[in-house]
Design a protein around this nucleic acid. Sequence first.
RNA 1: GCGCCAGUGGCGGAAUGGUAGACGCGCUGGUCUUAGGAACCAGUGGGCAACCGUGGGGGUUCGAGUCCCUCCUGGCGCACCA
Length: 788
Amino acid sequence: MPNKNYILEMFPYPSGNIHMGHVRNYVIGDICARYHKLKGDEVLHPMGWDAFGLPAENAAIQFKTHPRDWTLSNIDNMKSQLQKLELDLDWDRELATCNEDYYRYQQELFIDLYNAGLAYKKDALVNWDPVDQTVLANEQVIDGKGWRTGAKVEKKTLSQWFFKITDYAEELLSDLDKLKLWPGKVKTMQKNWIGKSTGAEINFKISNKNEFLNIFTTRPDTIYGATFIAVSINHPIVAKYQTKTEIENIRREFEKVDTEKEKVGFRLNIDCDHPIVNKKIPVYIANFVLDTYGEGAIFGCPAHDERDFQFAKKYSLPIIKVIDCDDNALPFTETGTLINSPLLNGLNKDDAIKKILIFLEKKGIGNEKINFKIRDWGVSRQRYWGCPIPVIYYEDGSFRVLDKSELPVLLPYDVDLMGKGNALLNLDKWRKIICPQTKKIAFRETDTLDTFVDSSWYYIRFLNNKLDKPFDREQVNKFLPVDKYIGGIEHAILHLLYSRFFMKALRDIYDLKVDEPFEQLFTQGMITHKTYKTKNNEWVMPKEVISKDGNLLREKTKEIIEEGPSEKMSKSKKNVIEPDEILDNYGIDATRIFMISDSPPDRELEWTDEGIQSSKNLVNRIERYFSQEMTDLKNDTEKKVEKFVHDIEKNILNFSLNKCVADIYTLFNYLEKEKVYLSNSMLSNKIIICLFPILPKLSLSLNKFLFKSSEINEWPSIKLELLIEDKINLPIQINGKLITTILTRKGYEEEEILHKVYQLDKIKLKIKEKKAIRVINVQDKIINIIIS
RNA sequence: GCGCCAGUGGCGGAAUGGUAGACGCGCUGGUCUUAGGAACCAGUGGGCAACCGUGGGGGUUCGAGUCCCUCCUGGCGCACCA
């Protein structure tokens, strides 16, 4: 039975054209896939389209086309561009997430998630992107801005659908350890995002009321130092004790200050009882308390927290030191011995936490708590071009999740996209229905699913894209996880975390045997190019720039051009190279070589004209080499070829593809220098097979020319015995410094070789009248003579 | 601020603790050519040399680009996470 090997590159959004970043991504995957096929593996290497999403709606408005037409024609175009690259893809497995035969099964999965309690609806304070007019998940907000639009995100309370990713927080975190073949960097980012911390929940009683205010803390040991409580402006308690107008006023005040620099607060007219000491402590609304973390409320211990200290200073609140330290060291945030804490005096942090937890639990006002930063995944989007959520609402406000038999809920084609907001909301003829079960008037859910839902399971659908259910259990167990998943690091959290959640959720719903979707993750580096600007700060395309008398000029206008640093290719900076033009000018093989040659695949690659040209030269050179008449072999020719096979294989497996290129140069440098021409020999056959994953077109044509065959044979096995060198250049050091080398056979006798070494002029000169006091012989590696 | 990664010729980059700079680009000189984004040959870390060289300083070791400590610089991530 052959090994299964699922090799997958992140599928593209059909924006209209393939760019160089895609080319690099897919060439890397293609080399792996071709290699593994030659090794006899059962290789899965599919491709599809992440086809829902906002750009289609924006384009619809801009170009007066329909999102569906725009998307499908982009797919057409990009597919033909990919085919021009002649990638070894299973096009039979192609899918596009915007097609009914994909999203209807996603609707089934939604129902499954709902029935499993993993999808729910609630009113929530959510992130609103005012430009795209839709809600965003927490993961899609970067520095308070929308990840696509860069617009400042607003907070809104809306009724929204959520996926309960928090149910899997612990497993998503602990399973990161199983992902041995993921970059550590990505794992760290996910770890930080999940944000597990262990501490305590403490219930503070509101003075003179039968109400409690819960806070989360990782430092319950400092409870005696608590001198105030602070809550977020969005905390429910605030709405209870302040009027709406007051809250809005406070919100405006908060917006005026930079929270990082200034802590401000407003006194809420309630106090809390300290849980241990008989005293009241004031409650504030503070700008620095996050509503999205813990309980949205904290106790302030100014002596031992930087922020609380600033706050206490500003509002003249007491500062009680409870950890032994110098008064000048306040706020002292490290650990130490507890003081001023009757129950805990003399204890260290860990013991104090243990003891206080027991105390709180006994009194029933607190307990140990593990808190996660990650929140549930908000999946509702107020947009047309996405997967409809299979839910209907009745006039009384209740809702019903549809049965699978009622699917699909098709996205209607005839919509008016020119209006503001979600086009589905205004489409009564689609929205309003008679519920087939209750015969009551009902309205369809008009929100669609976040497109990250689409990409959370597409790698499963590839296993059988024509099946009349989402997937087949046996196939999933057989072919998953994806063995090598290749894509950009920008999805470190978003797509990769959501997919991991989906895999686990589906595992539990369907009793699958797969815990993680992606066994190995490889993140390829981006492609950069020098940037060019006129004196008027106008960006200029590289191909418009010519060099003349040491100056750079814009060819048409003769304006002086300034060269800027190499940056990620982007349309806005015009430093873009079009794959189509490169393929036309240099061909597929040269393009592939350049994609892997100048730097390791996980690092940046700078596009240069010299780079692509020398790649082309290499392809021509190999072709020229094989057109020569056969000559006799040299002694070591077979050995060199074996080494080539061995090195190429090792370097493909490690993703050290830049070294594969070096291996090719090394081999042909040797062959040409020694004037050994192999023509249609067995050795040529081996070489051509090894070139095939990297240079498929050339290899096929050489194979046809030399061997009259259109089949590339299987990957050659290596004759290990040929790789062993029997003679070596043994380095000779004196006091650890290299003096000379001596050619000798392996397995030499130490005495015999030393005798020879001492005869060498260079060694004699160094030793002179001095004495060798020690000789270190690392057999077959090095000899180091220590002299006094 | 915290965390991670990296710093090697003019440039991109190679080096299980054992000959630093593989391989490529660029450059220099030459050959061939009507011509060349071609091809071929020779050279290319610095220094006249002894020698010196992997961001700086220290350490471990017979031996350090590689391991440890420390500082500097750059990149990335996180960032009031209580």
